[in-house]
């Protein structure tokens, strides 16, 4: 028990805060704890969480990525063009196209970082601008509505109609999100590749001396982020049913904030899937709650900012010290 608290301080704390928040909201906003609201909360979080687990992998490996949301837009745009040119395609082709395009963009980042020894924040700010500039140039900023039918079709994995005739449903994106979360968990927690990512993020020189292949680790981290960005792009089109070139611009910082809130360490070596989920859900619930309470959306940005400051500045306070006996003496 003490061990679990010790190694998951941030997750435990965030779970408690999230639970308190949910209880407070269910008391103050009657719509909050209803099935339609909770399912739409999940639907709206799907894309964010897919990005978040990708970003988690990059953070664990000691990097950072600013370009992923724009990369998703690039993937959407290019995939739309490609799919129409092969006669529309289908879900399988969609996943293949979007996934591999995303991986390519991620590998581009990895190559720039590793090949030229530039730190990841500089590289991904550069690619963020480059991706966005190119996208706006080629698309002319115009939305694409002409998409294959399968892509915009509504697919539900869960439907329920309540007594008032209001539907609650979970979209395909939620299933995809669950798949991405499980796959990422398997990667970072259950596979030796993932453990090498942690080691590389924790102590790059130590990892190198142990024989960890650094180039491949960068490739895996940013490639995985790219794959998630591609899949997130695919899902987002399915939700909004159009490709809007600048729709995702700016979302990267919200996701980054959520992942850091969930305990991933800027600088590498630390971060869990659980924390990542809690971080994303915390941001989503806060936004949803403020919405239901009729608070201005601008207040939301401010509150999230304040929460992150508090979370990061108290991250060093060790909860488990309350459980420690006196024996500790140097």
């Amino acid at each position: 028990m003490r061990d679990a608290l010790r190694s998951h301080t941030i997750e435990v704390r965030l779970a408690v805060v999230l639970a308190v928040l949910c209880i407070a909201l269910s008391l103050s906003a009657p719509q909050f704890a209803t099935l339609p609201n909770l399912t739409s909360l999940l639907n709206n979080s799907a894309v964010n969480l897919i990005w978040a687990v990708g970003l988690l992998v990059v953070l664990i490996a000691g990097g950072i990525d600013i370009s992923f949301a724009v990369a998703s837009s690039v993937v959407q745009y290019v995939a739309a063009q490609l799919l129409m040119s092969v006669g529309g395609g289908n879900w399988l082709l969609g996943f293949l196209f979007c996934g591999s395009l995303g991986i390519l963009l991620g590998l581009l980042n990895a190559w720039l970082i590793h090949g030229f020894r530039i730190i990841s924040i500089v590289v991904t700010i550069a690619t963020f601008n480059a991706f966005f500039g190119l996208l706006m140039f080629f698309s002319g900023g115009r939305n694409i509505y002409n998409l294959p039918d399968w892509w915009t079709a509504r697919i539900f994995i869960f439907e329920h109609e309540n007594a008032q005739g209001i539907w609650s449903e979970l979209t395909l994106s939620v299933a995809v999100m669950i798949g991405c979360v499980i796959a990422t968990w398997a990667l970072i927690r259950r596979s030796n590749i993932g453990r090498q990512l942690y080691a590389f993020g924790d102590n790059p020189e130590g990892a190198r001396r142990a024989g960890v292949n650094i180039a491949v680790m960068q490739g895996v981290a940013f490639g995985w982020m790219g794959l998630m960005a591609g899949i997130a792009g695919l899902c987002q089109v399915n939700i909004v049913k159009e490709v809007v070139p600048n729709a995702l611009y700016g979302r990267e910082l919200d996701v980054l904030a959520a992942v850091v809130l969930g305990g991933a360490r800027l600088g590498g070596g630390k971060g869990t899937i659980l924390g990542c989920i809690l971080g994303v859900m915390f941001v989503a619930v806060t936004q949803n709650g403020l919405n239901l309470l009729g608070v201005s959306p601008f207040a939301f940005q401010m509150i999230i900012g304040a929460v992150i400051l508090v979370a990061i500045s108290t991250a060093n306070i060790d909860l488990s010290q309350f459980f420690r006996n006196k024996e500790a003496r140097s």
Binding site: N192, Q196, Y198, A199, N203, A207, R209, G211, V216, G269
Partner: peptide, 30 residues
């Protein structure tokens, strides 16, 4: 045994000790 130890501060003691088993690109489960 490196002078600067070359260990991983955020990983568990057990994983630090057994880390070399995990190295390599052939994927396997932990």
């Amino acid at each position: 045994i490196w002078q600067d130890l070359a260990l991983f501060p955020h990983m568990s003691v057990a994983e630090n000790i057994a880390f070399d088993d995990l190295v390599g690109l052939r994927p396997r489960s932990v």
